[in-house]
Design a protein around this nucleic acid. Sequence first.
RNA 1: GUCCCCAUCGUCUAGAGGCCUAGGACUCCGCUCUUUCAAGGCGGCAACACGGGUUCGAAUCCCGUUGGGGACGCCA
Length: 469
Amino acid sequence: MSVVTRFAPSPTGYLHIGGARTALFNWLFARHHGGKFLLRIEDTDRARSTPAAIQAILDGMRWLGLDWDEPETYQSARAERHAEVAYKLLEQGRAYRCYASKEELEEMRQKARAEGRPIRYDGRWRDRDPAEAPADVTPVVRIKMPLEGETVIEDRVQGQVTVNNEQLDDMVLLRADGSPTYMLSVVVDDHDMGVTHVIRGDDHLTNAFRQYQLYRAMDWEPPVFAHIPLIHGPDGAKMSKRHGAVGLEAYREQGYLPEALRNYLLRLGWGHGDVEIISTEEAVRLFDLDGVGRSAARFDFDKLANFNGHYIREAEDSRLTEDVTQRLESRLGRSVTAEERGRLLRGMDGLKQRAKTLVELAENAEFYVARPQALTPKAAKQLDDDARGRLARLQVRLDGLDDWSETAIEEAVRRFAEDEDLKLGKVAQPLRAALTGSTVSPGIFEVMAVLGRTETLARLAAQAAPAEA
RNA sequence: GUCCCCAUCGUCUAGAGGCCUAGGACUCCGCUCUUUCAAGGCGGCAACACGGGUUCGAAUCCCGUUGGGGACGCCA
């Protein structure tokens, strides 16, 4: 049997981090087994689903590199088929019309809560004669759940999970307006789409019992269920706005690389021995449900940042330059010239060793594009009168340098330091401050080479003491 | 309240009865390299929630307690 998995987000918010991981696991599982990965938008909540949210999901999936195999399905387009299934159940006597009003149901719940009883529909119309139906209530269709026995699910992650059938009430399949409920829709869609493995968040575990019974009522073979634990925020509570990034696009803006997020998300709740850094190709090869843990995981931005730094270091300079250029342009409010872009590209290798996010990378790269406006406090400290005098003398030396290669520059500066009987740091730090406006940067000789002779000398002149008398 | 699930360093995890004086990664702290900062290398702090069993032997199996999470909609 070929594997078919699916990711079925509801477009009521945005694609959040938990959803992204669920999507990733489904994608990996399908790819690992050479099966299909499908995307289904559960937009049946007409009131809350928005086009913007659908777009955010699609964009997020693409950005994360999770490609789906067929055009995505929109659940709302399949309402007729869902209803058809419900009517069939009705014909077979496996479902019935319920005329209980909303007020009546609310009262039922209140009472149950007050008496400390389970909050469930009591099946009052299950065997009642439809002739008794009130004329002013349009009925809903409810499924007849088994009254006794138990429902057992062999969950691929949680193991054997059992519930007493008394716990399962007769859920609504079709609303009064004839539209299908989520419970009906998922089951019908998963069945019709040929989904073999339902991999989803833990929060659906109790739904699985109900859905399992629906499959049985239709005489369909239930899929394999795998309920993966939820992701919590650093404080142990459910991930929410308070925890910073909400939608996937926020992670993108904050400068995380998709491959880094993929790797990090993979390691949240899945393990394979001691390996931490796992390329996507490797992940496809190694991933299986056996490695999925059963307890909830907390999201740790520090570790994500660490992974991100790793992938930034591994990324192509041209790709990083492209991204950084865009970030700098919006930061500077002007376009980056070809020459400046060339500096970014040449300086990228040195730059990328020192950044954990693309935002940081762009910040650190800014001096290559724009002359430092204000010195950082520490940099200002480096440029005392002594240092400025030193720079002036160095400037003269550099001015006469024919070969502007990194090695030639280094040689010249080192010799200068020797001649002045100074440690290299005494020359390098003021130099760094003058050239970058900061005390932190890539290797200073590399910076000089990348900046070029003209620009370097110009920046030096701006900070050096006026020529000695 | 009822039901379901979970429980190893601060965090993510390895561990499927003896290999565990519990391993790795992130964080933090030293040292090292060094023109700064990173990265790297070396070292350090730090955990089997608790109580009962089962067994020659339990982090690993069973039961309970505690703690955490989730679900109880004509939302998905």
